[in-house]
Write a protein that binds this DNA or RNA. Structure first.
Length: 356
DNA sequence: AAGTCGGGGTC
DNA sequence: GACCCAGACTT
């Protein structure tokens, strides 16, 4: 079917059934669209909404974000995952603040130079905030196009990806770009959903190739997946038995939970006495392993053995630990904590859980 | 082209 | 449990 009919039919559907209450849809400034697009990378709308509202309230504009601390930005991001997004966002804000006078570029290539902004996110910012005619290619658009054209192969394959970008370009209307951009995402999010799509409500039900074949569920093709490897670690939960404070250390910027605060780690619980001797110059006689916690990432399982070590106030005074601080549950600082760390801290500092 | 980077929703 | 989600970046 002609692309003009494709996008007109989609826009007509959008006017009747599109979403209009998402927080970033009101007052869609480039900054607000940018924050929402980055938060929405690999993250579902309902998860993002409360984070977006807190973030925008605290960091109202680029200048506010650029002049805050990375620790505070990570604090507002903690729990959302993919923390490189927050670091990139922060770097980009500073770059825009200093190089572009606090205004996001309105040129696609300049936008894509900024850390954390790829082609799709750049296109979304320009289309949604500036009515510029650029395609996006997120998971929703990929799904809609793969089904509409019965496009086989996984979107990560180079041929499939380039075909999808071409189709995304050809599908765009010449007017109402912002509405169209939102419309194709809304269709993917509410009708053309991953499993059991609502084809009877779809504006394309008469010409979608996948639907004609009754094979909506096989598009897009899933990638080949290997079983996830299992890694293990031991969280050393050093606690001041008098004040309840717990020693945390900052994680390196690269790697898992980059820039967040976590417990010191060692390989096995039995390593703890030696670890305490080596790094804290403390002699430890006993420690208390908790039940194993499995935390699953995209590419591996992490089996965590949390081990509680109670220290006297006198011992704590002797501890010299660079890149660390004593976490106090009552006066918790504005630093980002990895989710399992936050959970364990809650257990550790709530009454009645001193030994378990 | 493959691997790295989270946490939660959903079935 | 397994799979996926408004992807980008590194190797």
């Amino acid at each position: 079917m002609a692309t003009s009919t494709f996008n007109q039919r989609l826009l007509a559907w959008f006017d009747q059934h599109g979403r209009t209450n998402l927080p970033w849809q009101s007052n869609p400034t480039p900054y607000r669209v940018w924050i929402s697009e980055v938060m929405l990378q690999q993250t579902q709308v309902n998860t993002v909404i409360p984070y977006y509202q807190r973030f925008i309230e605290r960091f109202t504009d680029i200048a506010t974000l650029a002049t805050a601390s990375l620790d505070e930005v990570l604090y507002y991001w903690a729990g959302l995952g993919y923390y490189a997004r927050a670091r990139h966002l922060y770097q980009a804000a500073q770059q825009v603040f200093h190089q572009y006078n606090g205004e996001l570029p309105t040129d696609l290539k300049q936008l894509m130079q900024l850390p954390g902004i790829g082609r799709s996110t750049a296109g979304a910012i320009l289309a949604l905030a500036h009515q510029q005619r650029h395609p996006i290619l997120d998971g929703n658009v990929k799904r809609v196009l793969c089904r509409y054209y019965a496009l086989a192969g996984h979107p990560s394959e180079k041929v499939v990806a380039s075909t999808l970008w071409r189709l995304a370009e050809e599908s765009m209307p010449t007017k109402r770009i912002a509405a169209y951009t939102q419309a194709i995402m809304d269709l993917g999010a509410t009708i053309c959903i991953r499993r059991h799509p609502h084809c009877l409500l779809c504006p394309f039900q008469s010409d979608c190739l996948a639907h004609q074949q009754r094979q909506e569920d096989i598009y897009p093709s899933p990638p080949l997946r290997k079983p996830l490897p299992v890694k293990t670690t031991t969280f050393i939960m050093l606690q001041n038995e008098k004040s309840g404070e717990v020693l945390l250390e900052k994680r390196p910027p690269q790697g898992i939970w980059g820039g967040l605060w976590s417990f010191p780690e060692c390989a096995l619980p039995t390593d703890i006495p030696h670890w305490c001797q080596q790094y804290l110059q403390l002699v430890i006689y006993q420690y208390h392993p908790w039940q194993l916690v499995r935390h699953t990432f995209t590419h591996f399982h992490l089996d965590i053995i949390p081990v509680q070590v109670s220290l006297s106030a006198e011992q704590c005074k002797l501890v010299v630990f660079s890149n660390g601080f004593w976490y106090n549950a009552v006066q918790a600082p504005v630093y980002g904590l990895a989710v399992p760390v936050a959970r364990l801290l809650t257990q550790l500092t709530s009454t009645g859980e001193l030994l378990s």
